[in-house]
Design a protein around this nucleic acid. Structure first.
Lengths: 153, 153
DNA sequence: GTACGAGTTGAAGTTCACTTCAAGTCAAGG
DNA sequence: CCTTGACTTGAAGTGAACTTCAACTCGTAC
């Protein structure tokens, strides 16, 4: 056991990511795998780090498309260095700062709006401020933050 | 024009919400509408406030299910008072505080991790901290935050 | 009175990040 | 050799919050 290569089950156990997700990641070009003689996936250890990267990036709010793009900036041949990670981390930090700022502004608008009972579309900063796509919510990305209310109440 | 009632197009113009979304909201029981003789929707002005409420609630990160539940706590017959709004606003504020706290913790973990190049699954707080479902990301809600990595690297 | 934009419906499509399923094949211990 | 659990594939399903479509009808300005 525990040779140079890892089966998909081993990678799943060690990363906490489901095998179905790992297959999906391979289809999507986020990770790579060799094959055994029988056609089963054999992952290099490096994939553990890569999967960890993917999961953390998701927590930061990146989509798989963005993550794929970020991974593409890593050196193809050599193992990523500290400098590589630092670069990506800095970009993430900025993103998080933005997200936090959006939420804080929303919270402050909300606080200053408590008791005003307005929500009257014209006056309320709460309704009219259309920040950076809220960075929240599921479904179609073009949900909030587009089509600002032109009409008024 | 501009009688007691509003057509769906007028509501769409004045709230910035698409007509398809308004129909969807009606189907989902989030707003109500009377009908004209010809069967077209006729919205009461109150719906403008209600739609504003829905959109702000979404920015705070509530799902439509949760919004429906919140709307259900509003008085059925009378127009909501300042006290009603205040109550809901307080609940939202707490939510936003939580979300902000999660992001700040993630940012701090990230900062303290810059340059460590770890992402090594066992040591990295970044990977192992499984906060409150991250409050981010689309798709299946059981995406992150469940199934903690039991195996280790 | 007629044209034409605005409205109607139900059904199906969209996006994202997966999961689930069916119908098998592979691999390793006994 | 045989069993059993891990693995394979492609296709279809999931959930949220809508949007899009087709094939109509309404309503109002001229």
């Amino acid at each position: 056991m525990a040779s140079e290569w890892l089966s998909i089950g081993e990678v799943a156990d060690r990363t906490g990511v489901a095998t179905s997700a790992l297959r999906f990641y391979e289809r999507e070009g986020l990770v790579e795998a060799e094959r055994s003689d029988g056609g089963q996936r054999r992952f290099h250890r490096e994939v553990l780090r890569r999967v960890a990267f993917i999961r953390v990036a998701q927590r930061v709010g990146l989509t798989l498309d963005e993550i794929r793009a970020a991974l593409a900036t890593l050196p193809k041949s050599r193992t990523p260095t500290v400098a590589d990670w630092t670069r990506l981390s800095r970009a993430w930090r900025a993103r998080l700062d933005d997200q936090i700022a959006v939420l804080e502004r929303l919270r402050d608008d909300l606080t200053s709006c408590i008791g005003c009972g307005c929500l009257s579309l014209r006056a309320c900063a709460l309704y009219n401020r259309n920040d950076v796509a809220a960075s929240l919510g599921t479904g179609p990305r073009y949900l909030l933050g587009d089509r600002p209310p032109e009409g008024v109440v």
